[in-house]
């Protein structure tokens, strides 16, 4: 997981809430609670980093908490909120 390059599905909207954020997928209509502001920060920072480990470092997430973030982001990939980075076709 840590070496994967993930990105937010373009059909997902994030809405800030006191506990973190709500993520809604307009494609599969799933609604997910991001239950910590740090998870929201990490998800918003995915773009522009080559690996999840890079993202966690750039967000200054203590390494002791990385396993929790790995499982949180795994759950988000399972609900298709996140997926593997797909290079944008050019030309």
């Amino acid at each position: 997981m840590l070496d994967r390059r993930l990105e937010l599905d373009p059909r997902v909207a994030l809405r800030p809430e006191p506990f973190g954020a709500l993520a809604y997928h307009y494609g599969n209509r799933k609604l997910i609670f991001l239950k910590h502001p740090d998870v929201v920060r990490v998800v918003r920072s995915l773009d522009g980093h080559d690996t999840l480990a890079d993202v966690l470092r750039s967000c200054e997430i203590d390494e002791a908490r990385w396993p929790a973030f790995e499982s949180a982001l795994t759950a988000l990939t399972e609900s298709e909120m996140l997926h593997e980075h797909q290079p944008v076709a050019t030309g």
Binding site: R15, P16, E17, P18, F19, L22, L31, F33, L34, K35, H36, V39, A68, S71, A72, A75
Partner: peptide, 20 residues
């Protein structure tokens, strides 16, 4: 995200910035 689900319910009971 390993938060206890009942804690989430407690937070939801306090209301959201907009309805779900």
């Amino acid at each position: 995200m390993s938060t206890n689900p009942s804690r989430l319910v407690e937070q939801l009971k306090g209301g959201l910035d907009a309805p779900i």
